[in-house]
Structures are given as structure tokens and as C-alpha cells.
Design a protein around this nucleic acid. Structure first.
Lengths: 197, 197
DNA sequence: ACTCCTTTGGACAGATCTGTCTACATTATG
DNA sequence: CATAATGTAGACAGATCTGTCCAAAGGAGT
């Protein structure tokens, strides 16, 4: 049948996804070939093509895994706070904690999607992730009583994306503090509240 | 000697740079092979290798061209305004005009640098561009009397990068308006002035 | 023990890409 | 005109990558 949960040997599918997640995220989808993935997963090449059908589908599955992980992490961080304002800021705090991880390599969706061919599975996954993120920010902005929740949600996403880019390309870990303070200021301006950091 | 300025036939170097700029920016550095570039430039393959030495150096030259163009455009937009506050906002207005161009494909440095191998010529070019941008924002922030020009400059760059990402990946041209309004709010908060749009 | 199904290991095809090399044409300049 | 520099056209090598195929091995359930 399916598998003995958390037993000794994960299935070929799970090992492939784990290897893809590590290698694709660390070195980039384009730079990592199929052979590296199957070698790192300890799996035969035919298993990959029987399970996923091709590299593009594996990349799609990798991005889905990453979206699930990121959504989980952010959802937990948000759930620990009480007010919508603090919940919005918690997203940036959770992102900032990622910047300090030694294996941080930026936003997988931006990195993979930036040079992906339009209309493919990669763009589908990127659209799904970005839509989820935008809706989260917009919902929280509405709950915080923003005059224009759509605009504030969009602005917070701009800061979120910009902080990820800066942390990746500038090796500047102060991006988290800068984006957090900027988010607080924008929230204050949009809700008419005070802007203490 | 060098060349008859603006005469009938540009040199092989100029044609290669023009072709690289068009193809690399439109389709991505990784997706476009050397053969496509030389065919589009109407140039022999040996000319490319005699002139630049290899693809990586051509990519580097392409990025230098783009930095020069972007810096020119932004410098002109800034020079048309009088106050530092308006000059900062002019950067976002100039960026927003790019979003409406039919050939807009995002920030070349983010797209090319996001999956580039570290320490290469591509990262050098990206660092140079991002450093120029950061210094511009920080200088204007200081001239505007911001309490912490470095932070405001960094925050404006986050917005700038985020807007470019959103325009590219979300096909959302309202990114320009959102980033412009957010920049105005951040400038107002950092300088203690009023925040009218 | 038998059967079914997954997995394995690797050879192989086909495509693509970077970079080299050779021989020839063009062009500008002394 | 002669010479030197520059550009052209394309074959070629070498590497790499995706995807296919096949015969053999292994494990689980009846």
C-alpha cells in the first residue's frame, strides 16, 4: 500500500522531493540537472520519470512543497499574535528569521519564476503563491481597518518582495529591520493609528 | 580608426551589444544561446569571441549597457525636479513609465542575478547597479532631511525592487501607484513632513 | 511458492550549447 | 597598390542535459 508513516525508508517520491528541494533551492533550478537530483536522492532515473513525468513537473512539485512550508510557517507566526496590525508585522518578523538561516537563498518563486517561460507550470506555481500572499496581506489590512485594504496589502507585498531581494542580492540582513519599520509606518498611515515600531 | 559616428554600418561590437540587449532582456540570459545572438546581430561567431572572449563577458557588457541606460533615465527624471522629496518620487514615476512599455520584462539585474553563480561577472554588475541605486536614494534622503537617511534609502529601494517584481510577476501595473504612494508615506514619516500624494 | 509491481542501474538517443579553428572576404590606411 | 586589421561562414569538438528503454533485482501480498 502507501507507506508506513515515518518509517525507515521513505518512498522514491519523497526522497526525490527532498533532494529537489535541497538542490534546486540551493543552486537554482536551471543549474541542477536531473542526474544530480537522482544521485542525491539515491533513486533510479526511471523512478523520476515514472513518478513525475519530467523535470518541469518535478520543479512544479518542488515549488508546491515550498509554498506549503512557507504558508505553514507564516500562518503559525500570524496565529501567535492577537491584533491584525501585529499579525501583519509578524509576517515580516518570520521572513526576517529566514534571512539569518545559513541556507537562505531568497524567494524560490522569484528566483525560479524570474526567467521562466510564460504560461508554464512554474508560472502557475508562482501565481498561486503570490496570490496567497497578497490575499493574506489584504485580509489583514481589512481587519486592521485600513481605508484601502487592497492598496495596503499590495504595498506590504512590495516590501516583502523587496526585503527578500535585498537579503539575497545585497547580503544585507538589515533588510528585515528596514522592511519591518516601513511596514509599521505604512500601516500607521493607512489606519490612522500611531506608528511606534 | 574607431568608427564614423551614426554612419551606415555599426561595428560588430555595437551590433552584438544591441542584439544581446534585445534577446537577453526579452527572453532571459539562460534561454538565449550564442547562436541566436550572433544570428540576430548578423555577425560571425568568431567576432563574438574575438571581441568579448565568451558569453559571460557578453552578459556582463549587456548588464553594463542596461545600467548606463537606467542610470541615464533616472538621472534625467531626478534633474527635472527641484526638491529632494520630489526627486525621490520621480524615481518611482520613471520606473512606473517603464511598466507600461510593451517590452518591459522586469529588472534585468534581478532576473539575471537571481540564479547566477556567486562571485561571477554577473554578480559584479548587479552589485554595481544596486550600489548606485542605494546611494542615490540615500543621498536624496539625506538632502530631504531624513532622520536616518540610510534607513529611508534602504526602504525606498525595497519598494523599488518590490514594485519591479510585482509588475513583472503579477502583471499588475498598479504596482507603480502603490509604490509611489508608499514612498510618499515613508518619506513623510521619516522627515516629519505632511504626506500628501 | 508464485505473482505483481515497483525500483534499479545503466546504456542509449537526440538535442543543444559553448568555444575553437580554418580559410576566405572585406575594408581602411599608409 | 600593398599591408594589416577586421569580419565572415561554417565545420567541428567536447560537454551536458533531458528523456527513453530494457533486462534484472527486490519486496509485498495471496
Amino acid at each position: 500500500m502507501a507507506s508506513v508513516r515515518s518509517a525507515a525508508k521513505p518512498s522514491a517520491r519523497e526522497r526525490l522531493l527532498a533532494a529537489a528541494n535541497e538542490l534546486f533551492y540551493a543552486e537554482g533550478v536551471q543549474s541542477v540537472g536531473i542526474d544530480r537530483v537522482i544521485e542525491h536522492a539515491g533513486v533510479a532515473k526511471a523512478s523520476l520519470y515514472n513518478t513525475f513525468g519530467g523535470k518541469e513537473q518535478l520543479v512544479r512539485a518542488y515549488l508546491d512543497i515550498r509554498q506549503a512550508g512557507t504558508a505553514d510557517r507564516i500562518t503559525r507566526a500570524v496565529a501567535e499574535r492577537d491584533t491584525p496590525r501585529e499579525q501583519m508585522l509578524a509576517v515580516f518578523e518570520s521572513q526576517g528569521r529566514q534571512f539569518d538561516r545559513p541556507d537562505f537563498h531568497g524567494c524560490a518563486f522569484i528566483r525560479t519564476g524570474a526567467e521562466a517561460n510564460p504560461g508554464g507550470l512554474v508560472q502557475e506555481a508562482a501565481d498561486a503563491f503570490r496570490g496567497w500572499m497578497r490575499e493574506l496581506f489584504t485580509r489583514l489590512a481589512a481587519e486592521a481597518g485600513a481605508a484601502d485594504p487592497g492598496t495596503l496589502g499590495h504595498q506590504l507585498q512590495l516590501l516583502y518582495d523587496g526585503a527578500g531581494i535585498s537579503a539575497l542580492m545585497d547580503h544585507d540582513s538589515t533588510a528585515a529591520a528596514a522592511s519591518h519599520a516601513a511596514a509599521a509606518a505604512l500601516i500607521a498611515a493607512a489606519t490612522g493609528a500611531s506608528a511606534e515600531a
